Structures are given as C-alpha cells and as structure tokens.
Computed example of a mutant assay.
Amino acid sequence: MEYRYLGNSGFKISEITYGNWLTHGSQVENDTATECVRAALDNGITTFDTADVYANTVAESVLGEALKGERRQSLEIFTKVFGPTGPKGHNDVGLSRKHILESIDGSLERLQTGYVDLYQAHRFDYETPLEETMQAFADLVRQGKVLYVGVSEWTAEQLRAGHALAKDLGFQLISNQPQYSALWRVIEEEVVPTSKELGISQIVWSPIAQGVLTGKYKPGGELPSGSRAADDKGGADMIKRYMRDEVLERVQKLQPIAEELDLSLAQLAVAWVLQNDNVAAAIIGASRPEQVAENVKASGVTIPAELLTRIDDVLGDIVERDPAKTNDSSPKTREA
C-alpha cells in the first residue's frame, strides 16, 4: 500500500480507502462487513470513509464495532454530515450549526472514537449561510473533535468560497469527495484545476462505476445474482445509467489493456483514477473480503501514457464530462 498527502497538509492517507456506502447496515450482514474491514486492514488500508446518512447511522455503528480494539493513531477515520438522519425532522438535515454540532457527537459515539480525522460536508447546503457552516466546522476543529475538514461534490465556485472562509477562520479545507471514474470525468474541467490552485485533494468515490468497470455485466446478459445492478435497496438506481449495451460493450474492450498490465478490469479502473495527481485516494467498497484483496493491488500501479490514450480511444463518447453535473449533485432545498 502507498500513502499520499491529503491536500496542502501534512496528513497522509492510504491511496486505497475503504468505504461502506450501500454495504454496511444494508447490502451485507454485519459479520461479513467486519470481515471486509479486517481484510482492508490486513492489506494495508488505514483509511476508512463513512457517513451518518449511510443506512441511517447504522453504517457508522458497524464500522465503529469492526475497528474496535485497533490502535486509533494508526487509523484515519472519515465521516460526513448533511443527509437526513434519525426521525428525519426539520433540523435533522443540512449544514446548519445545530445539525453539524449535534451530528458530530452522534458520529463519534457510533464510531467509538474521541475524534474523526476528516469531517466532510456531504453536499453543499443552499439554505444555510456558508459562513454559519464554516464557523461550526472551525469550532469543531478547535474543540479537537475534528482534525481536518473536507467537502463532497462541491463545485469549483463553492470550493473557492469555502476555502476562503476556512482560511479566515484559521483552518484548512483540504479535500473534496466527488464521483470519478474512467466513465465519469465531470470534475476534470473545473473542479480539479481549482482544487490544485487551492491545495485541495480529491478522495474519489465509485472508481469502478458501481461495478460496471469490472466487466462483470455483459451486453445483453443476465444480471449476476447479488450484484449492485440487482440490488433493490438503492444500488440498482445508482448503476442504471451505465446499464446500456453501448457502455458495456466498450468496457469489455478494455480487457486487453488490463491484461497488458497484468491487472483485472477492476484493478485497472482503480489504478486509472490514481493516475490523476490531484487524487489522494480511491474509495473502494466490498461485499466480500476477496474484493478488498483484489482492489488493493491497484496501489502503486503506473499506467503508461500510451495505454491511457488507448483507454480514452476505447471509451470514446460514452464518457460523461459535463462539469454542470457536479452542480446537480447537491439538492437545492434541504427538506428532510
């Protein structure tokens, strides 16, 4: 496993990060979830990403229990705040001071830790003054409950405004967590250049495009049992935009490139996002421990420039590049 600095800070994280969205407390049983976490630790992953909204707080509890007994200083634990939690009342969502300060205490209790290494604004809150949000984060940093602050799916303009306020308040905004894969490149035109200028790293989710880039979905074929596309608890909705024959056919054509590098298609997909020098980590999920062991082999891989060009040529116009898609990620109202 290799490690990278997060943003303009002295904080290092494992470039393969374990995330438990759509798995812990939802897709897989707790015992299997714990086995996946153990597999992550055994393979050198020290960074774990979750959110209070995942499985309505249950994912945090499962992760906290799975990490119980580990040396806290050897781990980097990330969580997020924004989404509706608890009974989903009118103050159980968003980035108000009330919701942030109450949410961190709940997250710390569930994660069984006195602090989180990175606390992230899960989306941008259009209904709360940004000054209020950033002041709440600044207070948590000073209280020692949060070591570093990041965001998720913010636009270039939002990153710039948040970064300026953080600087004024005496702390750093060091990370953004966007969706990014060989099929989904909407951050490249605006978010990445702005982030490089500001000293913000990307921690990217869905590097294998919800499993599509593993090649397990064949054009015209049946959905594999237990796969994300067959999941009626939310997974199928996320993956459906890729479940077109024209996409699946192009993915199959990546196989010779993966073979040249002695990689699986999944490993190629994870390694591909790590070629971007603004990416500090790729988040992987898992429903089986073996998936963790496979995906960590993408760490430290260098893909030659000529093969990166071939990947672009194979995928062609099925790649989504529209930077406006980032703006679509955050709800314009924060109704629970």
Rank of each mutant, 00 (worst) to 15 (best):
M1P: 11
M1N: 14
E2D: 10
R4G: 00
Y5P: 03
G7V: 10
S14W: 02
I16Y: 08
G19D: 11
G25I: 03
N30T: 13
A40F: 01
L41F: 11
N43M: 10
G44T: 02
T46H: 11
T46N: 14
F48Y: 11
F48R: 04
V53M: 12
N56V: 00
V58E: 13
S61L: 02
V62E: 10
L63N: 06
L63C: 11
E76I: 15
E76Q: 15
F78R: 08
K80L: 08
P84F: 07
T85Q: 13
K88T: 08
G89A: 04
H90K: 14
D92V: 00
L95D: 05
L95S: 05
K98M: 05
H99F: 07
L101Y: 06
G106P: 08
T113S: 14
T113M: 12
D125R: 04
D125F: 04
E127S: 15
T128V: 13
E132I: 01
F137T: 05
Q143K: 11
G144K: 06
Y148A: 10
V151Q: 05
V151S: 10
Q158R: 10
Q158F: 04
L159C: 10
A161W: 05
A161Y: 11
L165Q: 10
D168E: 15
F171P: 02
I174V: 13
Q177T: 01
Y180K: 08
V186A: 15
E189N: 13
V192R: 13
P193G: 15
S195K: 09
I203V: 15
V204F: 07
S206F: 10
A209M: 05
Q210R: 00
Q210P: 00
L213M: 10
Y217M: 11
G220K: 14
E222Y: 10
G226S: 13
R228Q: 00
R228I: 00
G234Y: 06
M238C: 12
M238Y: 13
K240V: 09
R244D: 14
E246D: 15
L248G: 06
E249D: 13
R250D: 03
Q252S: 06
Q252Y: 04
P256S: 08
I257Y: 14
E259P: 01
A266W: 02
A266C: 04
Q267E: 09
V270E: 01
W272M: 02
V273E: 09
L274K: 03
L274I: 00
D277H: 08
N278T: 02
V279S: 05
A286H: 02
V292R: 02
A293N: 09
E294C: 05
N295I: 00
A298P: 09
A298Y: 10
A298Q: 08
L308E: 07
L308V: 01
L308K: 10
D312N: 15
L315Q: 06
I318D: 07
V319C: 08
E320W: 02
P323W: 07
T333G: 06
R334L: 12
A336K: 02
